[in-house]
């Protein structure tokens, strides 16, 4: 929320600035330029994929008709954002949670890869452990303690309590 409000405030400021001294040089708002290009690219990708499907007619629309329509709309909107990025200026993007992305995003993927092989309990433990490292404040001992507690709690609630059909320990850890 905070980010948005600041954006709008700087947006207003940018408008004032521009009306004051009518754009001296052409410069781009990096965020919007990026946003516009990504959306245009995604639109083109979907359009390209839609052409691989049967289009049909307006009377009997094929599987590709409506998606093609939407991709064209998305592409056009992307181009508009790209063009507008030369006019309106926002504040820069701000810090990016690189460490966060590095550890948070793999956590569910790891869970997906191991829940069948290792089983539910180890999968939960390692998923939590991976996520723990996303914060530089988390001490290793704490991380193990939190993950262990979480694994015990989850197996009690989901496996024994709610009776979800998870294998507690999978074939990889059985001897």
């Amino acid at each position: 929320m905070r980010g948005h409000r600041q954006d709008i405030r700087t947006l207003a400021a940018a408008f004032e600035r521009q009306n004051g001294d009518k754009m001296k040089a052409i410069s781009f708002d990096a965020t919007n330029a990026l946003c516009g290009s990504i959306l245009t690219a995604v639109g083109l990708f979907f359009a390209w994929q839609s052409f691989g499907l049967e289009l049909g007619t307006a009377f009997r629309m094929g599987p590709g008709y409506f998606p093609l329509l939407l991709s064209v709309v998305l592409t056009v909107l992307g181009v508009i954002i790209l063009v507008q990025s030369a006019r309106v200026h926002h504040e820069p993007m701000g810090p990016i949670a690189i460490r966060g992305m590095l550890f948070i995003l793999p956590a569910p993927i790891f869970f997906g890869l191991t829940v069948r092989g290792l089983g539910f309990v180890p999968a939960v433990f390692f998923t939590a452990l991976i996520a723990c490292f996303a914060s530089h404040r988390m001490k290793p001992l704490w991380a193990v303690a939190v993950s262990l507690g979480l694994a015990i709690f989850s197996v009690a609630v989901f496996s024994y309590g709610l009776n979800l059909p998870f294998e507690r320990f999978g074939p990889w850890v059985r001897f």
């Binding site: 956590a107 996520a131 723990c132 996303a134 989850s154």
Partner: peptide, 28 residues
Amino acid sequence: PYFVLFPIIMAFCSIGVYSVNSNVYDLY
């Protein structure tokens, strides 16, 4: 503290999403 919360949230999200269809592709 927040750094204790989000590993918990991540674990519950993973369990929750997997429990819908038992489809590991949902986690990806």
